[in-house]
């Protein structure tokens, strides 16, 4: 019983790392641009497909595949932001009518990306077979290497993001933009470029999540729909716009979902994240690590 619970927790934590990566991207976009990106699940899906293409067609090893997919998807994100979202964010983001437009555009974009991917790759789920080697034995638990890979890579990416945001000039500029665009502009920060950078980084994180989960799940066109709600749940549970909150929320959602599927019922696996989301929204809408005042990044 305890072993089973620990097993579920470990699986939940490693899947939660993937949710956390997607949630980090969503949270980053929210804190930087004041918009919620509803097409982020599709970015994750496209990242996974780009990874699959690199891995199968070019026969690259896993690590270069991951890096290249992350970079390429980052540029896809910058492209989408420049061409489509820029017109709306220029008019002012936030919760108002412009925000409603952004929600609707994100929704439309998600369906467009999904169907573009459908036209290219078809409805079939693709396996992503990576030879990771034998599972690690921990007492009487067998931990597959793919989970270890997820945890290690995700932690590395999070640490890298933290260092970039806290220790570099670009990170400082991004935080300035997140805090106040006008004052950042007056201080000489190239705000439009930083917004594109934020979008690129967020999409790159989504792609990393997609490539990481691919060896466990299949790669398919529909994979972005479910993760969107879970990542949103993670971002909101941790506190929207707070990056440590996104990580914490992701892990929490992963564990809750895994325990719920193991102990209650696997049929409704996809609902637990939403129940958690609703409970947190009812009890403390600002999330666990969120603060009422608008201090972000």
């Amino acid at each position: 019983m305890i072993d089973y619970a620990i097993d579920l927790c470990i699986i939940g934590l490693s899947v939660g790392m993937v949710y956390a990566l997607v949630a980090l991207g969503i949270s980053l976009i929210f804190s930087g641009l004041d918009i919620v990106h509803f097409a982020h699940g599709e970015i994750y899906m496209i990242g996974a497909f780009i990874g699959l293409m690199l891995f199968q067609k070019l026969a690259l090893p896993y690590v270069p595949t991951l890096l290249l997919a992350v970079i390429l998807t980052g540029f896809v994100g910058v492209f989408i932001e420049r061409v489509f979202y820029r017109r709306l964010t220029r008019a002012g983001g936030g919760y108002t009518v412009a925000g409603m437009g952004m929600v609707i555009v994100g929704f439309g974009m998600s369906i467009v990306l999904q169907n573009v991917a459908f036209l290219i790759w078809g409805p079939k789920p693709f396996p992503f077979p990576v030879p990771f080697g034998r599972p690690i034995e921990l007492g009487n638990l067998a931990l597959p290497m793919s989970y270890v890979w997820i945890v290690v890579t995700a932690l590395t990416l999070m640490a890298a993001l933290h260092l970039v945001l806290r220790k570099t000039m670009i990170g400082l500029a991004i935080r300035a933009v997140a805090h106040n665009k006008d004052i950042a502009y007056l201080s000489g920060v190239n705000v439009p470029l930083m917004i594109s950078t934020i979008f690129g980084i967020a999409c790159a994180l989504g792609a990393a999540a997609g490539v990481l989960i691919a060896p466990i799940n299949y790669v398919q066109v529909q994979m972005g729909v479910g993760i969107l709600i879970k990542a949103f749940a993670a971002a909101v549970v941790g506190g929207f716009g707070s990056l440590p909150g996104a990580v914490l929320g992701g892990l929490l959602v992963g564990v809750v979902e895994s325990l719920g599927a193991g102990f209650i019922s696997g049929t409704y696996k996809d609902i637990y994240a939403f129940v958690l989301l609703i409970v947190v929204l009812m009890v403390k809408p600002s999330g666990i690590l969120g603060v009422a005042a608008k201090v972000k990044a």
Binding site: F30, I35, V36, F38, G94, Y95, T96, G99, M100, M102, V103, V225, G226, L228, I229, F232, A233, V236, F240, D270, I271, A273, F274, V275, L277, I278, L281, M282, P285
Partner: peptide, 20 residues
């Protein structure tokens, strides 16, 4: 939930409800 949630948050909550 819409009493406490605005804009994007409400969109998320309703999207989650629909899928659930």
């Amino acid at each position: 939930p819409s009493l406490r949630l605005e804009g994007a948050y409400l969109a998320l909550a309703t999207l989650g409800l629909a899928e659930s």
